[in-house]
């Protein structure tokens, strides 16, 4: 039994918080009503730390990530509340021009599908040097040199000739390397990666993960790693945040979370994971489906109750708060002690 949760995780506890998110609320205003895709989410990431954001498809991971750079499509999306502090500066208070200065420079993003995330009609060199030309005073020649250097660092062979290549002429792994290079060019303090390996072949996935780990170690960036692959979590993350239906339901150092998940949903994720057939699929071996955001509007109690083996009457009537199960593990569940106890019994 290991739920005493001695943090193996956050190696840089004393570092400054690069990112601090407080009570983030992102809503979609649709004909079906207001969908609370991100509903009061708070977390932070230290420099050099990797935080994994996990949860089933549709739980709000991507919207959280996009909100951080204010990239949620508006309409219909809107950040209606909270604070997003990047090295102490509130991104939500910034003017359009100021947030544009932050994007790609102090905070950069890597997307899931490198083929569609790269512009099909511009060559790689153009799309990469654009970042430098936008955020620095470098000349075209200097930008080119920086781009070549970065392409080498992300393991692209023959970078000179790749500059003239178009995305469709590259392999999937190569494209994702280009995306990573693009994100790292301006040496960001915060790197957000939204399922960077999901669209890739298994063998390529491992290479890209290794590259991301190397780059993180070299740059010391704070990394928010979105994934639904717990294998990726185990390899990359220091801490893990579990989301369910727009809310954080559990947050803990990675070892604590794997050893002793305190939320029934997290427990379900763990049990559904080490299985070859579901490895690349969504995390949904838990019976039932994520409630649609529309259905949540009239929901009083715990959002996980309809699928939860531990659910009680109290659960269905009142939503639990996020509370500390130990000093570095927080959980949104009335019966987390039972959840932990159940694992001891096994």
């Amino acid at each position: 039994m290991t739920y005493s949760a001695t943090g193996f995780g956050s190696q840089d506890q004393n570092n400054a918080k690069v990112l601090q998110v407080e009570n983030l609320e992102t809503h979609f205003i649709t004909r079906a009503g207001v969908l609370k895709a991100v509903d009061g989410v708070s977390f932070h990431i230290h420099a050099g730390e990797t935080v994994a954001l996990v949860g089933e498809s549709g739980c709000g991971k991507s919207v959280t990530a996009l909100s951080l750079l204010r990239l949620v499509p508006n309409p219909p999306g809107e950040i209606v509340g909270g604070r997003i502090l990047l090295d102490g500066d509130d991104l939500l208070e910034m003017s359009q021009s100021e947030i544009e200065d932050v994007r790609g420079d102090r905070a950069a993003m890597i997307f899931q599908e490198p083929l569609t995330a790269l512009n099909p009609i511009l060559n790689v060199g153009n799309q990469l040097s654009e970042v430098i030309l936008r955020h620095t005073k470098a000349s075209k020649r200097e930008a080119r040199a920086l781009v070549l250097d970065m392409l080498k660092r992300v393991g692209i062979s023959d970078p000179e000739s790749r500059l003239k290549a178009y995305p469709h002429q590259l392999s999937g792994g190569m494209r994702q390397r280009v995306m990573i290079a693009m994100a790292l060019l301006a040496n960001p303090a915060l790197l957000i990666a939204d399922e960077p390996t999901t669209a890739l072949d298994v063998t390529i996935q491992a290479q890209i993960l290794e590259l991301m780990r190397d780059m993180r170690d070299q740059t010391g960036a704070a990394v928010l790693m979105i994934t639904h692959d717990l294998g990726v979590v185990a390899e990359m993350a220091d801490r893990v945040i579990v989301m369910y239906a727009g809310r954080i339901v559990e947050s803990a150092p990675v070892r604590t979370l794997f050893a002793s998940p305190a939320h029934p949903y997290t427990l379900g994720l763990m049990r559904s994971t080490p299985n070859l057939t579901t490895q690349r699929g969504e995390l949904s071996a838990i019976p039932g489906l994520v409630p649609t955001l529309a259905a949540l509007k009239d929901m009083e109690g715990c959002r996980f109750a309809p699928r939860c083996a531990f659910a009680s009457q109290k659960c269905r009537e009142h939503e639990p708060p996020l509370e500390n199960a130990s000093n570095d593990q927080s959980v949104r569940c009335w019966h987390w002690d039972q959840v932990l106890a159940s694992q001891v019994a096994v």
């Binding site: 990239l71 511009l122 693009m182």
Partner: peptide
């Protein structure tokens, strides 16, 4: 609505560049 337009915005490019260079070309 395409991903690469989102990428262009995520790079911090100014709106006229996002629209003119990345969107309109496509």
């Amino acid at each position: 609505r395409q991903d690469y337009v989102q990428t262009a915005r995520a790079k911090g490019l100014r709106v006229p560049v996002v629209l003119g260079k990345h969107a309109f070309g496509n």
